Computed example of a mutant assay.
Amino acid sequence: MAVLGAFLAALGVTDAIRDTSQGRVSPARRYTALAAGLVTLGALLAAGGVPVATGLSVGVPLAVLLAIWAHDGAIARAIGETPGLAIAFSAVSLGIVVALLFGDPVHTAWPSWVPGPLSEIPVSRVILVGGIALFQVATANLLVRLILEAVNVPSKEGSARLRSGRVLGPMERLFIVGLGLAGNLTAAAVVVGAKGLLRFPELAASESRGSSGPPPIIIQAAGAEASEKGADTELPTAPVDHGPNPVTEYFLIGSFASWLLALGGLGLAMLVWE
């Protein structure tokens, strides 16, 4: 449990410092973010009481996967390239699998100077919950962007139209995870419904802007008749149908991806909860 929490926390710290929202990340910032993530990983493994042998056998592969995630060129330079997407998803997925399969359950007591009810909660559980929370704040935001790019939904236009999404997303995920850990996951439906209601005016405005103009006109029959008669008539052209509004796609796919990441974090917590 402590190993999984340490890896998730290291990812969250790395992405919070790296900040890929601007597209390009300088090498100095990437190295700083990676160093902070590695320090977080090692410190939490030690704080969780993970034995040295387990820490080396599990911590080294996790550190390598963290480095791959932090230095993936496609993420750092131009999010959306197919090789970069595969590498990014693989690094996070393999890290979670390694932490689940090879992280020994360890129960470490708090120091004697820690008072109150906190001392009654296992240290590994605190590390796990903290790691899931950090993961939901920064890393999950980046994963949502990668999912949007993977299905060819550009995130720049959607984020420009639906402002505050990168702030509301983490708050929403933390709320869902918190309600789930508290045993009241049903109340998370209120969050989902409220988000749809609050965003509905913006989505409706985007749809109206996207569908402005005359309706499509079927001109095949008229065109055939005009060509038979040899008439020199300029026929109206039908507007090109570009498919669903990209802002609506951004909202729907991004929201579902965000919810799935929140439920995934909750599922990991339930899987290793002791």
Rank of each mutant, 00 (worst) to 15 (best):
W69I: 08
F175T: 14
T237N: 11
A224C: 07
E225V: 15
T40D: 11
P170A: 08
G80M: 01
S119A: 12
Y31P: 11
P214R: 13
S112P: 09
R161K: 11
S124M: 03
T40K: 03
V13H: 02
G169W: 03
R18H: 14
A188S: 09
T233R: 08
V191F: 10
L62W: 04
T108C: 13
V191L: 13
P105G: 05
G73T: 11
A269Q: 07
L266K: 00
I75E: 08
L263K: 12
G158Y: 01
Q136R: 09
L44C: 05
G49L: 00
G264R: 03
A6M: 00
F89R: 06
S124C: 10
R163S: 14
V137I: 09
F251G: 08
A262K: 00
A189C: 14
A36G: 08
T139N: 02
S21I: 09
G264A: 07
L168F: 15
V60L: 08
T14H: 01
G131C: 02
L85D: 05
A262L: 02
A36V: 05
K156A: 15
V123K: 12
P170F: 09
A194T: 07
V137G: 08
F200T: 14
Y250H: 06
F7Y: 08
S57W: 05
G103Q: 11
R145L: 11
S206E: 01
P115I: 14
Q136H: 15
K156M: 12
V97S: 10
A231Q: 10
G183F: 02
P216E: 00
P244I: 11
L181D: 09
E249G: 14
D19S: 11
S159M: 14
Q220R: 13
A74P: 04
A2S: 12
L185K: 02
L174G: 06
E249Y: 12
Y250C: 00
S155H: 14
G243Q: 00
L128D: 14
I121H: 12
G193D: 14
L263D: 04
A138D: 08
D19C: 05
P239V: 07
V272K: 01
G73E: 11
L263F: 10
I96K: 05
G265A: 05
A160T: 14
G180M: 02
A9H: 03
P83G: 01
A76H: 10
S164V: 12
S208Y: 12
S255Q: 11
A262T: 02
L266I: 03
L235T: 05
P27N: 09
F256A: 15
G131D: 01
A224F: 10
Q136N: 15
A78G: 07
P27K: 04
I87S: 12
K195E: 06
A269T: 09
I96M: 10
A188R: 00
V60K: 08
A221Y: 11
L11E: 06
N184M: 13
G5N: 06
V52F: 10
R30G: 15
I121D: 10
L260H: 04
G265D: 01
Q22R: 13
S211V: 07
P122S: 06
I176K: 03
P27F: 04
I176Y: 01
P51L: 00
L148I: 02
E202I: 12
P244F: 15
L44V: 07
L44H: 03
Q136P: 13
V52N: 06
L179W: 01
A262G: 07
V192Q: 06
R199A: 11
L4N: 00
S227R: 13
G243D: 02
A269H: 04
A70M: 04
